[in-house]
Nucleic acid binder design. Structure first.
Lengths: 249, 249
DNA sequence: ACACCCTGCGTACAACGTAAGCAGTAGAGT
DNA sequence: ACTCTACTGCTTACGTTGTACGCAGGGTGT
C-alpha cells in the first residue's frame, strides 16, 4: 500500500535507471507515456486502455507492465508530462502573472482535455505540475498577502479555469463519441424544444429569441476578466476583508 | 439512435404512464431512481452499478431494465431528481440572487458529489435542471444586459462553482475509497516531501512554513465573493466593456 | 376462455485491468 | 567459454462491468 504510492513518487521525481543485465528493452517508460498521451489526445480518455496503448506500440497489453507499474501510475506520469509543456510566467504585475498562469493552464486543457476527466484528488503530483503551481503562487507573492490568502487567490483562478475546462472537455468528448457537433446535436432535439414554453421557462425562451445562445460571449475570456477584476478589488483594497478559516468540506 | 435520445426526453419531461394490462410491477421508475441516488450518495459513483442498485431493491440487475432503458438514462433521471431538491431564488437584487443560486448549487454538489463526476455534456437536461437555470438567468434579467451577457454572467458563476465542486467531489471520493482522510494521506507521503526543497519550490516551501496550507481560507466563500465582486465591476460600470463573440473551442 | 402484453429473471458476451507464470536472451562472474 | 541470473515479451486466465436475448408465468381486456 504505502510502498505502492512511494513507487509513484520515485517514478515521477527520479529518472528511471536502465538495467545493465538482460536483453535491451524495445520499449521505455517515456515511450509508453508518450504513446498513451497520443492515444488520449486522439481518441479520448475512454479509448485509453492498456491494450490500445500497447497496440499503437506494436506490443501486447502485458508488455507495458514492464515499464509502468499499473494504469494509475501511467496516468500520473501522463499528467505530469503534459504539465511540462506549459511555460512559467515571467516576473511582472500580479494581474499579468495570474492571467498568464490561467492562459497556460487553459491552453494545456485545450490540448489535452482528458486531464480534466481524470480524478485529480490523491493523484501523485509530479515535479512539473509542482513547478507550475509554485510559479503561480510567486505571481502574487509580493503584495503583502498572508500565506493563506496567496493560496486562496490562486485557488480561485484555478477553480474557474477548471470549471470552463471541464465543460470544454465534456463537449470535445461528446463530439468525438457521437461524431456530431454540439450545434447539430441540439438542433436534432426537437422533442426537447417542444417543452420550451414561455410559461415554463420565461427567461430561457427570451434569451433564445434574442439569439443569446447563438452568439455567446467567449466563456473563458469573459469569465477570466471578471475573476481577475474581483481579485483586484480584494488585493487593491485598503483594509482587506479577511475571510477566516472555516470548515470547508 | 435518434429515438433513443427522444425516449430520454420523454422519460424526463413526461410523467411515466402505468400500463393497464399485465401484472402490477413491484418496482417503479421513481423507486429505481431513488434507490440509485441512495447508492451513489452512500457508496460513490463507482459503486453505482446496475447490480448494486438492484440488490438494494431486492431484485436482480435485469429487472431494472423494465423501468429504465439503460444506465445512461438512469443517470439523466438521477441528475434531474437532485436538481429538484434545490430552491429557486426569491426576487431581489442581482447579487443576492446570483449568490443564492451559487449556494443552492453548492449545497446540491455537497449532498450529491457524484453529479460532478458524471460527464455533463449531452446529458439530457430535465425540467428541474432547466427551471433552476431559468431562475438563475432571471436574477440578472433586469439590469439592461444583452441576452448573451446574461448568459455569460451566469455561466461565469457556474464555472466557478463547478470548479470548487469538482475538487470537493474528488476529495470525498478519495476519502471513501481509501478510508483515509485527506490530511492523513498527505502526511503519509514522506517520500514526496523529500523533494520539497526551497531551491526547487521556493514559494511552496515558504507557504508551507507559514502554515498557509494548514489553515486555508474557505475556498467556496472566498472565491464566490471575488467572482461576484468582479461581476459587480462589470455590471455596475458606466460603459460596459463588450467582449464580442469569438471562437471559443 | 382466450389472446396478449406485461412481469422478473437466467444466461451469455464482449470489453476492461492485471495476477501469474513461462521460454528465451544477454551481460556478469568465474 | 560457461554458467548464473536478471530481464525481456508474451500467453492464459479471472473477476467485474453494461446489457442483448429469450423464457416462463401472471393479470387484463375481450
Amino acid at each position: 500500500m504505502k510502498s505502492d504510492r512511494d513507487r509513484s513518487v520515485r517514478l515521477l521525481w527520479e529518472p528511471p535507471v536502465e538495467p545493465s543485465r538482460g536483453p535491451k528493452a524495445s520499449l521505455s517508460q517515456s515511450r509508453v507515456v508518450e504513446a498513451a498521451i497520443k492515444v488520449a489526445d486522439a481518441e479520448g480518455v475512454d479509448a485509453l486502455t492498456m491494450r490500445r496503448v500497447a497496440e499503437t506500440l506494436g506490443n501486447t497489453a502485458m508488455s507495458l507492465y514492464r515499464h509502468v507499474p499499473g494504469k494509475s501510475e501511467l496516468l500520473d506520469l501522463m499528467v505530469d508530462a503534459v504539465w511540462g509543456e506549459t511555460e512559467l510566467a515571467p516576473k511582472g504585475h500580479w494581474r499579468s502573472g495570474l492571467e498568464f498562469f490561467a492562459r497556460q493552464v487553459w491552453a494545456m486543457y485545450r490540448a489535452h482535455p482528458w486531464t480534466l476527466q481524470l480524478t485529480a484528488s490523491r493523484r501523485m503530483p509530479g515535479p512539473k505540475a509542482m513547478a507550475r503551481q509554485d510559479a503561480a503562487y510567486a505571481a502574487v507573492s509580493e503584495l503583502g498577502l498572508a500565506a493563506e490568502e496567496i493560496v486562496a487567490v490562486v485557488t480561485t483562478v484555478s477553480h474557474f479555469v477548471d470549471g470552463v475546462g471541464r465543460t470544454m472537455a465534456d463537449r470535445v468528448q461528446a463530439e468525438r463519441e457521437t461524431g456530431v457537433s454540439e450545434e447539430e446535436w441540439w438542433n436534432g432535439r426537437e422533442a426537447l424544444w417542444e417543452h420550451f414554453t414561455p410559461e415554463r421557462l420565461p427567461m430561457m425562451t427570451h434569451i433564445w429569441n434574442s439569439g443569446g445562445f447563438e452568439r455567446p460571449l467567449d466563456e473563458f475570456e469573459f469569465g477570466l476578466a471578471r475573476v481577475l477584476d474581483g481579485l483586484a478589488v480584494f488585493i487593491e483594497s485598503e483594509e482587506r476583508p479577511l475571510v477566516r478559516p472555516q470548515a470547508c468540506l
